[in-house]
C-alpha cells in the first residue's frame, strides 16, 4: 500500500491542462491541409497532387482544386509532389465538422497559419443541455485497423480524462446516447452495426471517426464494400484523420456538445 502511494507520488499528476491550455503536438504533426490560392496551378491543368493521392482525396470541383479531409490519410505525398509548394499541412488539429461538406479544403488566399473557423455546430437538439452534462457513447469498431480505436481509447486514460467532460464510453448500446464508429463498415460488419444502432436510445447520435468511417478511406471501392458510416446511417459529427489525433477527436466532441475549447 505504501509502495503504491510512493509510486503514485513519484509518477505525479499527469492529466493535461487542456482545455485551459493548447495541446503540445509533435513538431512533425500533420494537421489541416492548406492550399495556397496564389500559387496552386490546378486550374491551369496541374495534376501532380491528384496523381499521388492514395485515396482520391484531391479532385477538381468546377475547375478548382479541393481536398476532401474525409478521404485524406494525411500522408503528405501531395505536399511533396506539389511543384509550386502550394499545398502544405499545417499544425491545426481542430478538424472536425458537423457536415460532410465541411471537410473540404479549397484554395485560400489567406496565409497557411491564418485561423480557420470551426465547422462544428453544437448539436441542434432539445437534449443538448442534458448531453452537455452526460453523453454516453457506444464505440463500434466496424473493421477499423485498431489505430482509431486506440486513439478513442486513449481519451479514457488519465492523460485526457474524458469523464471530466461528462463523456463516457459504455458497453451497452441501451445505455448510450449515440454511436462512435471507426472503420470502413464493410459488409461483414453492417448487420451488427445496424442492430447496435437500433438498440441505442434517442437522440441516437452518430460520430464517424477517421477516414474509413467517413468515406471508406483506403478501403473504398474494394470488394468488401466498406464505404463508411454515411452509406448506412445519418452522421452528426465527422472527425477526419488516419487516425485522428486524440486532441482532434476531443476537440470535435467538445464543440459538438457546445463546450469551451481552446
Amino acid at each position: 500500500m505504501l509502495q503504491t502511494i510512493a509510486e503514485r507520488l513519484r509518477q505525479q499528476y499527469r492529466t493535461v491542462p487542456y482545455p485551459s491550455a493548447h495541446p503540445v503536438l509533435s513538431e512533425r504533426f500533420m494537421g489541416r491541409p492548406h492550399i495556397n490560392a496564389h500559387t496552386c496551378t490546378a486550374n491551369a491543368g496541374c495534376t501532380a497532387c491528384m496523381e499521388v493521392c492514395p485515396t482520391q482525396a484531391l479532385a477538381l470541383q468546377e475547375g478548382t482544386l479541393g481536398l476532401d479531409m474525409g478521404r485524406c490519410t494525411f500522408c503528405g505525398k501531395c505536399a511533396k509532389a506539389c511543384p509550386q509548394s502550394a499545398l502544405t499541412f499545417t499544425k491545426e488539429y481542430r478538424l472536425a465538422s458537423s457536415t460532410r461538406q465541411g471537410l473540404w479544403v479549397f484554395p485560400s488566399p489567406e496565409p497557411a497559419d491564418a485561423p480557420v473557423p470551426s465547422q462544428v455546430q453544437p448539436f441542434d437538439h432539445p437534449m443538448l443541455p442534458s448531453l452537455r452534462r452526460s453523453c454516453r457513447l457506444r464505440e463500434v469498431s466496424a473493421a477499423g485497423c485498431n489505430a482509431c480505436e486506440a486513439d478513442c481509447n486513449v481519451l479514457g486514460t488519465i492523460v485526457f480524462d474524458l469523464p471530466r467532460f461528462g463523456i463516457d464510453y459504455v458497453a451497452s448500446p441501451r445505455h448510450a446516447d449515440g454511436l462512435l464508429i471507426t472503420g470502413p463498415l464493410p459488409r461483414n460488419m453492417q448487420l451488427a452495426t445496424q442492430k447496435c444502432y437500433t438498440a441505442v436510445t434517442p437522440p441516437k447520435l452518430v460520430m464517424a471517426v477517421g477516414a474509413c468511417a467517413i468515406s471508406g478511406g483506403l478501403f473504398s471501392g474494394l470488394e468488401a464494400e466498406g464505404e463508411g458510416a454515411p452509406a448506412h446511417l445519418t452522421v452528426n459529427l465527422f472527425i477526419p484523420g488516419c487516425p485522428p489525433h486524440p486532441y482532434t477527436i476531443l476537440d470535435g466532441m467538445l464543440r459538438f456538445l457546445g463546450k469551451q475549447v481552446p
Binding site: 469498431s141 473493421a143 477499423g144 472503420g183 470502413p184 464493410p186 461483414n188 460488419m189 451488427a192 478501403f219 474494394l222 470488394e223 468488401a224 466498406g226
Partner: peptide, 11 residues
C-alpha cells in the same frame, strides 16, 4: 472471425 474483412489481400 471475419468481421474485419476488408478485402486487402485481393486488392
Amino acid at each position: 472471425l471475419g468481421y474485419h474483412h476488408r478485402g486487402i489481400e485481393k486488392a
